[in-house]
Write a protein that binds this DNA or RNA. Structure first.
Length: 480
DNA sequence: CGTTTTTGACCCGCGC
DNA sequence: GCGCGGGTCAAAAACG
């Protein structure tokens, strides 16, 4: 975008200056005058565009700075909390219920960090706005059970920590046929069950997709297929093959009512580094699962309230109870036994993201809630996707150490792929871009959720391992 | 020839 | 205990 503007503005300006020179001849004077007017207005436009360009640049820089400082801040606090929590092995349900807000979605920032002033004013403003908005996005790192997920998301922690956590995670994730070793003894039964629910938590993504499966950047191997009751389309079962013992699985099924809609359900957390193209989805599923599960402990009370709608930087975030409503997209399928978060990306025409945990009978053990992320403005998807920074450098989750990823399988071009190129769509979205940039950058986790949402949808053009051709590529081309 | 997909068999939980 | 349905296994086939 920037490059395009620069080129056109500088190139055009030099031409115009030359044509500006000739003196007004008698006959042509009026024509020349009107031309001059045009030129002047064009020049003025150019200037505006250039100013806008520099302004955006500065904004971007500022945002990056703020983001980095927030990231550092978050990691600091997270590490402190980890230390603290090592003295308090189990956080009881009661403690969690004491949390102030009714629905608390924490996907990255701690809304309750009272200490440590942030250096920048704007970031504290952002936080203020978040607090005012009534909805909190941020990973609930108070919960020990979500720690492993977090460790996956936040890669800036010390290597020893990561290793330790990864080991723990593996112990929890892989389905051990025998008893779990005594290392989990400290946690007690409560945590055991919580861990298992983390494992069981599912993130379902609905997206329009022509192909048999969405390309989410991971490598999958099909290990089964079944005709599920109530749906003529078979359900396919895939297993992540990027690491030998990766516990992540996904189910892919076409929606019975809308054949163009593909429902992909992810289960588990990757226990290996991911290519950048896969981080978005991975962190989303992880964050969403954590969100759901932490929500499930806090929203029993919270969801007694009626639907909640709030605005975050122009994006509508709807929280509504869903316990009675049968999910539209699972019309005939039996209600799943596991808590499931659903990201609904099918309403791209109405530019609405729906993120809702679903699937619970009214008598369910799990609370139900319906979160939908929507925008009143149009073209939100391309704009989000256009922000290559979402999925490249700035995304804090799972910063994959490319060099250290010697799993061999993924081909080099697999990395970075969907995020480069050019595209004609990006123009004419300036104001929205600002809004969205604000929204995105104010909350890294929101970033990841939305980015992943988009990436999953956008990346859907390709086959499973055929690289990322199709819309994703062209969207990504916007920004470079 | 190694990897992936296909597909029938099998396992397990649940409701009756 | 039986049937049903979801999920997984694993041998065979297909693929590159």
């Amino acid at each position: 975008m920037e490059a395009r503007l620069n080129i056109s503005s500088s190139g055009g300006a030099s031409k115009e200056e030359k044509s500006d020179e000739p003196v007004c001849l008698e006959e042509n004077c009026s024509i020349e005058a009107s031309k001059e007017d045009e030129l002047e207005s064009a020049k003025a436009e150019m200037r505006e565009v250039r100013e806008e360009n520099t302004r955006l640049k500065m904004m971007l820089e500022q945002i990056e700075k703020e983001y980095k400082s927030l990231q550092r801040h978050f990691i600091d606090i997270f590490q402190q909390e980890t230390k603290k929590n090592s003295n308090i092995p189990v956080i009881t349900l009661d403690e969690r219920i004491k949390e102030p807000e009714l629905v608390s979605l924490r996907l990255g920032l701690s809304p309750s960090e009272p200490h440590k002033d942030d250096n920048t004013n704007s970031s504290s403003k952002i936080r203020e706005e978040q607090l005012n908005s009534g909805l909190k996005l941020g990973l609930d790192y108070n919960l020990r059970r979500s720690k492993s997920d977090l460790m996956e998301l936040v890669s800036d922690t010390s290597p020893e920590n990561s290793l330790e956590e990864r080991k723990k995670e593996e112990a929890g994730e892989t389905r051990p046929p025998s008893k779990v070793s005594t290392t989990t003894a400290e946690s007690g039964d409560d945590e055991q069950s919580q861990l298992s629910s983390v494992k069981r938590a599912r993130v379902s993504v609905r997206a329009r997709c022509d192909t048999t499966t969405m390309n989410d950047g991971c490598q999958w191997r099909k290990y089964g297929q079944k005709i599920a009751k109530g749906n003529p389309c078979p359900r396919a079962y895939y297993r992540c093959t990027m690491a030998p013992a990766c516990p992540v699985r996904k189910q892919v099924q076409r929606c019975a009512e809308e054949m163009s809609v593909l429902i992909t359900t992810y289960e588990g957390t990757h226990n290996h580094p991911l290519p950048i193209s896969a981080t978005a989805m991975a962190s989303t599923t992880s964050a969403a699962a954590t969100m759901l599960l932490s929500g499930s402990s806090t929203t029993q009370i919270g969801l007694q309230s009626s639907d909640t709608t709030s605005q975050i930087h122009g994006l509508n975030v709807n929280l509504s109870e869903n316990s009675r409503r049968r999910p539209l997209y699972l019309p005939n399928s039996p209600l799943p036994a596991f808590p499931t978060v659903t990201l609904d990306l099918t309403s791209s025409s109405s530019t609405q993201f729906n993120l809702f945990s679903s699937s619970f009978q009214s008598t369910s053990r799990f609370p139900s809630k319906n979160l939908s992320f929507s925008s009143s403005e149009s073209n939100i998807l391309p704009t989000f996707w256009a922000d290559g920074s979402l999925s490249q450098g700035t995304i804090p989750y799972n910063k994959t150490p490319i060099g250290s990823l010697n799993l061999g399988r993924p081909s080099p071009e697999h990395f970075y792929q969907p995020y480069f190129g050019n595209n004609q769509r990006a123009s004419s979205q300036q104001p929205l871009t600002e809004t969205l940039t604000k929204a995105i950058t104010s909350d890294p986790s929101f970033q990841s959720v939305v980015a992943a949402a988009i990436s999953s949808m956008v990346g859907g053009g390709g086959g499973e391992t055929q690289g990322n051709h199709g819309r994703g590529e062209s969207f990504g081309k916007n920004f470079k």
